[in-house]
Simulated assay, not measured.
Amino acid sequence: MKLIIQTPHFDAQQKLLAFAEDHVRKLQLINERIVEAHICLKLDKSDKRENKICEIKLVVPGNDLFASKQSNSFEDAIQQSVSALKRQLEHWKTNHEQRAEKTQ
């Protein structure tokens, strides 16, 4: 899986980038057909404490999946986004298997 990480308007520490990469790569255990993952870590310029945003787009043949979460830390936003994508991948896999059974 090709991984693209963007951090517009700030320089992320290597530790944060490794954290994001490690968590997103685990999604391949659910679906090995993931071609690319685009991760965007952004700072919301609002006055709220929860101003860290993680957006992840997974490119899967036949269907792209997307999750965006906002939290008070990037690590938490990454974990929430990955969790949402895990649910989407499991749902997609279940539906895909059911369709395959119907065509047999």
Rank of each mutant, 00 (worst) to 15 (best):
K15E: 13
V59P: 02
L29V: 04
D47V: 03
L89R: 10
F74Y: 14
L27C: 05
L65C: 10
V82P: 09
K93F: 05
E32G: 08
S81V: 06
I56P: 04
I78P: 04
A18V: 05
N51S: 09
S46V: 04
V59Q: 14
L85P: 07
L3T: 13
I56M: 06
A84R: 13
I5L: 15
Q80P: 00
F19R: 02
V60M: 05
C40I: 14
N63H: 04
L41G: 11
E36K: 09
L17V: 12
R33N: 12
Q88T: 03
H9G: 01
K48N: 14
L27Y: 04
A18M: 02
S71Y: 02
A100N: 15
D11L: 03
N51D: 07
K26W: 07
N63C: 08
H38S: 07
S73K: 11
H38V: 04
S73F: 07
K15C: 00
C54D: 11
R25L: 10
D76S: 15
W92G: 00
K52H: 05
N95T: 01
A37F: 03
A20D: 08
V24Q: 12
K57D: 06
Q88P: 00
E36Q: 06
V59R: 15
F10N: 07
D44E: 13
L16I: 13
R49A: 04
H38T: 03
I30V: 15
I53N: 06
L85S: 08
E90H: 05
I53G: 01
N63I: 01
Q80M: 13
E55F: 02
L27D: 05
K93T: 13
W92L: 12
I78V: 15
S46Y: 00
N72P: 00
D64Y: 05
K26E: 11
S81T: 12
A20W: 02
D76L: 15
R99Y: 02
L16N: 14
S73I: 01
I30E: 11
V82H: 08
S46F: 03
K86L: 00
L16Q: 15
S68L: 09
N63W: 03
I78W: 09
L89A: 11
H96W: 09
A67P: 00
V24K: 12
S46N: 09
L17H: 12
L85D: 12
Q79R: 13
S71I: 01
I30G: 14
I4T: 10
E55R: 11
P8M: 06
K86S: 14
V35A: 13
P61S: 10
L16T: 14
A84F: 09
N51W: 01
E50W: 04
N72E: 05
T7D: 08
I34S: 01
V60N: 14
L27R: 13
I78H: 11
T94R: 15
I78K: 11
